[in-house]
Design a protein around this nucleic acid. Structure first.
Length: 273
DNA sequence: ATACTCCCCTGAGAGC
DNA sequence: TGCTCTCAGGGGAGTA
């Protein structure tokens, strides 16, 4: 369940090994991972390009190549592993890139929900899927007025609105719960009832939560035991999310679990109104 | 136009 | 032990 802090952590970790590496070959073993172009075009087009940088946009990893940018969305369980060329392809390894020195860089995804896009660098920001992303948490344009304007006409719950990537890009289910807890907002509050002041609280707490999580290398809730897996430390800092039978750190009351928009949601009914 | 539901997938955990 | 059933979940597609 990588959200912005996990995606940033992965990007940083991959950069140390991938910058300057050339893609010599590519094989796709599960076609649906490749969202654009076709599997065949993807395999052909990516070969020969050098990885110059790895950044993020929303929850996407952006691999900057020679003529294209490779976008990767890890969705729930996408991961990357480094193996040796010729090593057997394991059950959940779906895309393989052969790099310099016979390094085999592999995309691993148990649920097969992840997606890759190979788009020309010239206009990739204007094209799907990045074109529909909202502001980054650190963007100066993310003000209380912006958020209020985006949500005040919506009748859905505030929890759902914060998951909407076209408003703020990068918040997922875990950090959403943490942000709402710090903002003293009930996840079922109608977004049209959220005040300008509360929008300010949400933005401030979004920045606090995400920045701290990034410092700590993200949250590892479910991880494979692997030396290559990215293990963050923020799970130790979670205040409400995942606290089944947990105690509210503010009032000592019981953390409640419910469903909001189909997502498992943790909150304190006493502190969040 | 907005807000739902379903679907993609598999493994973990519950129940029998 | 081993089977079946349910659930998790980001986000796109389809539907009301």
């Amino acid at each position: 369940m990588p959200e912005k802090p996990e995606v940033i952590t992965v990007a940083r970790s991959l950069k140390t090994r991938l910058i300057g590496q050339k893609i010599h070959a590519c094989s796709v073993y599960w076609d649906n991972i490749i969202a654009y172009p076709s599997k065949e075009e993807f395999e052909k087009q990516v070969v020969g390009q050098v990885i110059h940088d790895i950044t993020t946009r929303g929850k996407f990893l952006v691999f900057s190549l020679d003529t294209d940018n490779l976008l990767v969305h890890l969705r729930m369980e996408g991961k990357f592993f480094f193996r040796k060329k010729g090593d057997p392809i394991l059950k959940h390894e779906h895309v393989e890139f052969i790099l310099d020195n016979d390094v085999s860089f592999r995309y691993h995804d148990v649920r097969k929900f992840g997606k890759m896009y190979l788009l020309n660098k010239s206009d990739y920001m204007e094209k799907y899927p990045l074109c529909q992303l909202g502001l980054e948490y650190f963007d100066d344009a993310l003000t209380k007025e912006y958020l209020y304007e985006k949500i005040h006409a919506k009748k859905t719950h505030i929890k759902t609105v914060l998951l909407d990537q076209s408003i703020i890009a990068g918040i997922g289910n875990i950090y959403d719960d943490e942000i709402l807890f710090l903002s003293h907002l009930h996840p079922l509050r109608k977004s049209c009832d959220v005040t300008l002041k509360e929008c300010e609280d949400i933005i401030r707490n979004t920045r606090i939560v995400l920045e701290k999580a990034i410092q700590l290398g993200g949250t590892t809730i479910k991880s494979f035991t692997s030396e290559e897996g990215v293990h963050g430390l923020f799970q130790n800092e979670l205040l409400v999310h995942g606290k089944k039978d947990g105690v509210c750190p503010t009032c000592g009351g019981k953390i409640t679990i419910t469903k909001v928009g189909g997502r498992g949601t943790y909150f304190c009914p006493k502190c969040q109104k």
